[in-house]
Design a binder for these strands. Structure first.
Lengths: 343, 343
DNA sequence: AAAATATCTTTACGCGCGATAAATTATAAT
DNA sequence: ATTATAATTTATCGCGCGTAAAGATATTTT
């Protein structure tokens, strides 16, 4: 809290009785100066409130403290939830996260990466679109900056990947559904914008075969990120035409499931595992609202916190230890079965 | 997209055959140079892809193209939705929006404003916490930067405010509910984190009195931003104890209503306006998921697009016309009744 | 065509700080 | 106390670009 107005580091150095280069060292790493001088500087800071000019700081620095965080779509609560944790983890580590949403458009993902270039980020955490992404742009970016992927993987891109093990998680759900009732069919989008959908598709097929059941896939038409709407319209169509041969439906993600629950309600179907119920519907992701659907949604919880923390620590580990990791690290966390009333 | 690597504006100027100061002018305003020289520069841009260093650009400039956008909580779909539109509007206008979420904490709102200071933003769009906000910090910031508030108002802070007219919108809903059935009681949080809740409370009371009914308020305990949970637990308690004297409940916002719908479902109550229904539940905001609740939620739609566009145009109007607006502008848009099945 | 105006080039300086080398201390180890 | 080591000071350069002034061209007007 200050009275006088300090214009630059030169002036601040003089009022604190320390030379400017030492003050500069202090701001880059307070631990790198002697305790006595640090005390002087911090005393002066309280009297004169000054803070270094970020633009001048970052102009000549090899590496800034900026961390880019790029997610495909902040309007999706899954991403806003995980982005929130990533942001906080960066702040805790003393970095400045810059959160960018690509608003569901792959070309904006490319633009976002290009914008980040001029910010000279120390590193970037990217949840990519996957196949929809501009591969060349991401590949080029990967060569110029330390990059860690999360949520969705792209082969050989980035120094590390952190996500959920879809094969484990889907198997967990399939196993549970088979054990507790009829084997599930699988409901997904025909052209999903998120690459995890493809993994889950595969995982479902393999898991069903392992359990001795024939996989049954139902694909919804529709593009874009309006998953609930697609789940409601296409799912409702399938439900009302009794296209499903089983009373158990596993949706590729919670948002599709939320849409289907809405359609089922509209059709007067009772959803759940009770004896008086017509169908079971399950999802995947433990979406923030899945606790409050009607009925509450049985789903797989991704470990948001672990994913966010690992992605951040993988990145900062590289940055701070200057490690030249020859090997790309892939970390997947297990999903956790969350049993509620819908299945 | 180019082959050669241009290091700085000097080099780029030479390959384009134009002097550096003119190139500098071009990047600050492409319209300020002659068409023939602009053509040369743009031809060179295609061959050599160069972009000016932002840090060096912003260092000496009086005003940057940075726009700060601060919202209380990106995890709330209402804010992620409106922030998305604000961001896009800024980009369209040629500015660089920097989106910051305060993650539900007032002290982080203050920190966010302080971080923005060092970015020398041309202006800032702030959706404040309201009473919870650090008034002094916001007031000080207001004096140093062009500031426009949206969603929540604070008296005399900012050059403009843009939001929804809660008195109009709540009255619209009360009128509809009274006309189509029993007069509503009002369900809200006892200590809401969002100041609009207080406006809606007042609006409900006034509207009820105007319609000749006695207002009945029910307040839920609970702090923080877990509105659905609070709506579910506290709403469920009230529902099961039959505390409401009327079969019609107006919730202060959709997220509370979503929680209450969940509780009602759990209690086996039929929600809706049909003859066979037990209660009617209405919300406010047209939350992205309110179309998919069971039953779909009758609510008031805020005009996100209009609010975002007006907030941005109010700010840019000031910036670009250098208007010294003596008067603070307050703009409120009307809410729109969205009739679905829940009430 | 000449005159008036708009635009460009040249030259030069400054922004605030990072980085470095050499000289000078202050602190720790012997 | 003397030496070895670590930290600080002094001095100086450079980052990439904004900005301004003066003179040189180009374009438009008469």
């Amino acid at each position: 809290m200050g009275q006088s107005k300090i214009r630059n580091m030169e002036e601040f150095a003089s009022v604190s009785g320390i030379s400017r280069p030492t003050v500069s060292k202090y701001f880059n790493d307070p631990g790198s100066v002697r305790v006595t001088t640090r005390a002087k500087i911090e005393a002066a800071l309280k009297k004169h409130d000054y803070q270094p000019n970020v633009f001048a700081m970052n102009q000549n620095r090899r590496t800034t403290k900026n961390i880019g965080v790029v997610v495909p779509n902040l309007a999706d609560p899954f991403f806003s939830e995980i982005a929130r944790r990533v942001e906080l983890a960066c702040i805790d580590a003393g970095y400045s996260p810059i959160l960018l949403s690509s608003h569901g458009k792959a070309e904006m993902e490319r633009d976002n990466l290009n914008s980040l270039r001029s910010l000279k980020p120390a590193g970037v955490l990217l949840a990519p679109f996957g196949r929809m992404s501009d591969y060349d742009a991401i590949h080029a970016f990967d060569k110029d900056f330390p990059l860690v992927l999360f949520d969705a993987n792209i082969d050989d891109i980035g120094k590390a990947f952190v996500g959920t093990d879809n094969f484990q998680s889907v198997d967990l759900m399939v196993e549970y559904l088979c054990r507790s009732g009829e084997a599930p069919c699988f409901f997904e989008m025909k052209t999903p914008p998120n690459p995890n959908a493809n993994k889950r598709h595969q995982a479902y097929v393999e898991s069903m075969e392992r359990h001795g059941h024939e996989p049954k896939i139902f694909q919804a038409e529709g593009e874009g990120w309006k998953f609930e709407e697609i789940g409601s319209i296409e799912g409702g169509r399938l439900l009302s035409s009794k296209a499903f041969k089983t009373n158990t439906i596993l949706c590729s993600n919670d948002r599709l499931a939320i849409g289907m629950l809405s359609a089922a309600y509209g059709l007067g179907l009772r959803v759940g595992h009770g004896v008086d119920c017509d169908i079971r519907i399950a999802g995947h992701d433990d979406h923030p609202y899945s606790r409050f659907t009607c009925p509450p949604l049985t789903t797989i919880a991704q470990d948001y916190e672990a994913i966010a923390n690992r992605a951040v620590s993988d990145l900062f580990g590289m940055l701070e230890h200057e490690e030249r990791l020859s090997d790309r690290i892939e970390t997947t966390f297990e999903g956790r079965l969350v049993m509620r009333d819908s299945a």
